[in-house]
Nucleic acid binder design. Structure first.
Lengths: 214, 214
DNA sequence: TAACAAAAGTGGTCTGACCACTTTTCATTA
DNA sequence: TAATGAAAAGTGGTCAGACCACTTTTGTTA
């Protein structure tokens, strides 16, 4: 009652303590953490509780472990949170069509962002892709979309998109067919010229075509 | 050798096994998982390994635990993630910016979908919300956005949005201030009238205002 | 000095033991 | 019969100790 976190479980406390230790000792990504036995003694808890905390952090990708070698702080930018959650959330949605729809939401936004940004829509990537398409070289649909999302420089969106791609029943794979060439050309041209509306139109038609082909 | 993931740690395997069990048995949020001792026997591993897996999932907010009462599949709304992430990950400015940006992508799309659909933009919810705003009743920002996303009927987007909402440094909480009233009124009116462009404009201004207020 | 084997350190896993708490069971009682 | 309440069973929370497998350090030997 009177205590704020009296009910808080040891392993949760330990996660917080570990954060403190990491900060106090100025452990940087790649740096080594004290051993499990050391931490247990230092924090006055059992080794198993320390392990539960460490394993939680490991699943999140916050730390890395070398069997027999020690525990190391990972680059927090590489956290696996999104991936882990996706594993639990996405399977339920795989057959609902929502995955596909959600992917398109992200893609449409990326198109707008790129087309609306002078710097982004002038990137040499689009020209090079367009060139490949015209030359008849195989261009992966997936790559084009990826380039756009990467260009918007939002790692989180990129991660989500990758995961959705993985769970989508009709993933963006394979080589563009002759039929797609027209749409692709139109799309890339308009993208390069900074025409979001036109690029979006071409994109919609392109995607609709794909949907029908299956 | 012959096994694919022989090196994979038991607790990681167990997380996957649990995922499988949850799906196979069709355990829904709020449903009860087998006990730790049961799981240990069933999966042929030690209870400590089961616990390491369960604790990891608990930290992620995928399950909830009642001391003496059992383990339950959680509603994705409740996790400690906010805390954990805030401490380890979110200090990165870019990261939190991405969370915010991603949320807005989903929200903008929901606005468009609602405003472009005759049936959706005529839902009585908007009228009722608008009424509340005008009357000066407290209207949660979060609720308005949620109603829109729910209206689009994409469970996955809704789930992702909920999760992002948790990570956001500045979640959509609290009551709308007087200052917001103007934007909200404009936004809801245009939404109801099926004016996506105008509704989006109002939304952008509304959100920008929020961003500045912090 | 280089190479190598022993020792120490460390994570990985299991078992068993208590404790605290909740749910179920079932005999007692109104 | 129905309500009550205490015992029993079930369950999560935590700890200690034991091995194992692997890595790092140490120290001796060639």
């Amino acid at each position: 009652m009177t205590e704020n976190q009296s009910k808080s479980k040891v392993f949760i406390e330990t996660v917080n303590d570990l954060k403190g230790i990491i900060q106090e000792e100025g452990i940087k990504p790649g740096g080594k953490l004290p051993s499990e036995r050391m931490l247990a003694e230092r924090l006055g808890v059992g080794r198993s509780s320390v392990r539960e905390a460490l394993r939680s952090m490991e699943l999140l990708g916050l730390i890395q472990t070398k069997h027999g070698g020690g525990t190391y702080l990972a680059d927090y930018r590489n956290h696996q949170l999104v991936e882990v959650l996706a594993q639990f959330i996405l399977p339920d949605e795989a057959e609902s069509g929502h995955v596909f729809a959600t992917q398109r939401i992200l893609e449409r936004d990326a198109i707008c962002e790129v087309a609306l940004d002078d710097a982004l829509c002038k990137l040499p990537v689009w020209e090079s892709l367009l060139h490949n398409v015209i030359e008849g070289q195989s261009v992966m649909r997936e790559d084009i979309i990826r380039e756009m999302i990467v260009a918007t420089n939002n790692r989180l969106v990129y991660k989500i998109w990758l995961l959705l791609n993985q769970y989508a029943l009709r993933p963006y794979k394979g080589v563009s067919t002759a039929n797609e060439k027209v749409h692709l050309e139109r799309f890339l041209s308009n993208l390069r010229m900074g025409q979001p509306t036109l690029a979006l139109e071409a994109y919609e038609e392109w995607v609709d075509t794909l949907a029908k082909e299956r």
